[in-house]
Simulated scan of single mutants.
Amino acid sequence: MHTGQDPVDTDVVVGAEANSDTAAGNDPGTGRGFGTEPVGEPGTDPDQRGAAESNRHSNGGEAPGDPTGDSGSRLWGGTTLAARRQARRTALLEAALDLIGEAGAAAVTMRAVCRRAGLTDRYFYESFTGRDDLLDTLYRQVADEFLDPMTAFAAAADPDRDRLVAAALVDKVLDDPRKSRLFLVEPYSSTGLGQTTIAVMPAFTRLLQDHLFRHITDPDQRRLAAVTMAAGNAGMFSAWLGGSLKAGRAQIVDHIVAVLTAYRSMYRD
């Protein structure tokens, strides 16, 4: 459990363990803190100062030079504390995606992510409690990116809806190999994603139940079709991305449309 204090990390972060900028939480090699904060005297890290000033304000004091007492909205080097934190969080998530794209979720460790992002571990713990928390956050974010366009097409009253949904899904799979690997391949090989996958997948089965299979009147049959198709598609895409299934984009789209049609025919009254 993270205690709020910076853990001791003997790892070399961006090859600059002994560098005073790194020790101060600044961007190595630039002489400036992440988010364009200039390097100050020891103890003048603007983010650390902002937290201290915020604490003083909560105890009845007022942060120097901050008439509102809201240190999170104060500018330093043209950006607020909240904006700098969000930028660091985004950098850590992108670094994790890069590692997943190169070597899978097993390559994602706190030290590897920090090294790739050019940040120290204290900034990692600013956003995440640990590796599993980062992977959970990233997986849910990617799942939403897959679900949103599919839902938009599935909810539309378009005679070619099945093909539009299938094409949206396939195009999303092809759009960013890093995200597709995380979402469709890594759950089969990474124990750290098992519970997250279980929590996320019902949203995809509900999409099938509520829109694409809504004409199947029996609720048990409707759910059976939705769960089976969702799991089958996940396995198909995993094999496709892994190279063991040889098929083109058009073939995959046609297959999804055919399976949707087959399930409806199977359970037609």
Rank of each mutant, 00 (worst) to 15 (best):
A203Q: 10
V227N: 09
M229C: 00
W240C: 07
S265C: 07
I256S: 07
L224T: 08
V257S: 03
R206G: 06
D218P: 02
P202L: 12
H255I: 03
L207W: 00
R206I: 07
L207E: 11
S265Q: 14
F237V: 10
Q221D: 12
G248M: 10
Y267S: 00
Q251D: 14
T205Q: 10
M229V: 04
G242W: 05
H211I: 01
A234Y: 03
I256D: 02
A262D: 08
I256M: 13
M236I: 10
G248C: 13
L245D: 03
G232M: 07
T205H: 10
P219R: 05
I252S: 06
I256E: 03
R249I: 13
G235K: 01
D218R: 09
A239T: 11
L260S: 08
A239E: 12
Y267F: 15
A247G: 04
R223T: 06
S265P: 01
P219I: 00
L241I: 15
I252L: 15
A239L: 10
F237S: 07
R206W: 07
T205W: 05
L212V: 10
G243K: 02
A247C: 02
A230S: 13
R214P: 02
M229H: 13
G242S: 11
A258R: 14
L245N: 09
I252R: 01
R223Y: 07
T205D: 11
Y263Q: 10
T217D: 14
D218W: 01
L212I: 12
Q209G: 06
V259L: 04
S244T: 15
M266W: 05
L207M: 14
L245T: 00
G235W: 04
S244F: 09
R206N: 13
A230V: 10
P202F: 02
R249N: 11
L260I: 05
Y267D: 02
D254K: 08
V257N: 06
G243A: 11
A258K: 08
H211Q: 13
V253M: 10
M236L: 15
I252E: 00
A262M: 11
A262E: 07
A230Y: 11
